[in-house]
Design a protein around this nucleic acid. Structure first.
Lengths: 215, 215
DNA sequence: CTAAACGGATAGTGAAACTGTCCGTAAATG
DNA sequence: CATTTACGGACAGTTTCACTATCCGTTTAG
């Protein structure tokens, strides 16, 4: 366990805590007070830290994700869906404003032929984002063909291609490793994309407002 | 204040707490025990909740953002840069692995002609994401022309166009409103994009793995 | 043979984000 | 005019979360 702590950079007490909370499967016992941790444990700790540090998930949500990863009877696609639901950002869900946004989100899904579950939480994630966007005047909930709509549809096309490529590159190994790979891909690429977009925004801000800074 | 609480959906004690922590400017006092809150306060609470709920910022980080928003002497572009630094996700920053990733990130910035500050925290955000990506075999830190590199360069091009359009649509109003608008745009559009990408991933997962679920 | 390390159980800690209570004043109501 | 109600401000209390520290019996290396 000390070795696992060293390679993962997580303290031994914290590893024990993860063990208790079901985030980490126990090692194979070699004696009453000795256990071996292998490569799968290293990957697991990395997964947990990625979900906590990058996706800001709570311990309980991470537990839900790893439960889906570890359930060997659950097909890959179903496990992936469950993990996606656990990782959703933001619910607001008050008022009829939300219902409008939800309808807009469902329309978006249908228009772009996304094959996703009817109750996929990501629909609410998008609807919530729509609520915020409308509150600030980025979009108009009442108008399905608002200014930004084609912008989002264009993104849908780009992301569909990228996602197909990403899923195609998932190695055909053991089921749980494949689920882990897709889950990590979801959150880490998301952060990388966010970083690139923020760079583009700072660049654009420099081009539009930079001159004012240099009096 | 009760009215502000009603329209914003945030409890009165919480608003008082935000007032104490400097997240909310006080209203104009009409008497010793009476203060008026206007539209700017509603927007401010919305901004705070967006940063907390969507960007997962801590109260302290939100305070840093609103300080930049409120400092009327600070040019828009500088304020935006400060807020970007406060919103960064993820630092890892251990080992030489990180230095490699940072070099890769800087190369990416230069190659795509991003005009961003040399010490912009978003560089570390991207480098951190690169570390995670390499740990899982998505990219190879040693090889600057790894498989995913052109993928990211393509995103850079797309995001540059989107960012230019987004910044161009910032209304020419008061300085602080313009900064608020860009900050909110950063985080909310990010969530919307993440949702769309996750939809694309679930869609791709259905196409690749769905058949296995239906035995 | 002894001392350090191990795994497991349980209790404790510190920070963060609220929440509840009290108070003096002031406006609204009858 | 009297009284109830709401207000803003100060400050103490609470809850949750993510760890962290301490014991304990075993075991294994020196």
């Amino acid at each position: 366990m000390a070795a696992l702590s060293r390679t993962s950079g997580v303290s031994v007490p914290t590893l024990k805590y993860y063990l208790r909370e079901g985030l980490l499967h126990s090692g194979t016992a070699t004696a009453v007070n000795q256990a071996d941790y292998d490569e799968s444990h290293v990957r697991r700790v990395r997964l947990v830290r990625a979900l906590i540090d990058l996706a800001h998930l709570s311990i309980a949500d991470v537990a839900a994700v790893v439960a889906a990863v570890d359930d060997e009877t659950m097909p890959i696609h179903d496990a992936f869906g469950l993990t996606q639901d656990a990782m959703v950002i933001g619910p607001h869900r008050n008022a009829e404003q939300y219902r409008l946004a939800r309808a807009l989100a469902d329309g978006f899904v249908a228009r772009n032929d996304f094959h996703i579950r009817a109750h996929a939480q990501v629909r609410e994630m998008l609807a919530d984002a729509f609520v915020h966007l409308s509150e600030w005047g980025f979009i108009d909930l009442a108008d399905p063909h608002h200014a930004g709509a084609d912008q989002f549809d264009a993104l849908a096309t780009v992301f569909k291609q990228m996602a197909a490529q990403e899923l195609a590159s998932v190695p055909e190994t053991h089921r749980s490793e494949m689920v882990e790979y897709t889950v990590v891909g979801t959150v880490v690429v998301e952060v990388a994309m966010a970083a690139i977009r923020r760079m583009a925004l700072e660049d654009a801000s420099e081009r539009r407002f930079g001159a004012r800074s240099r009096r």
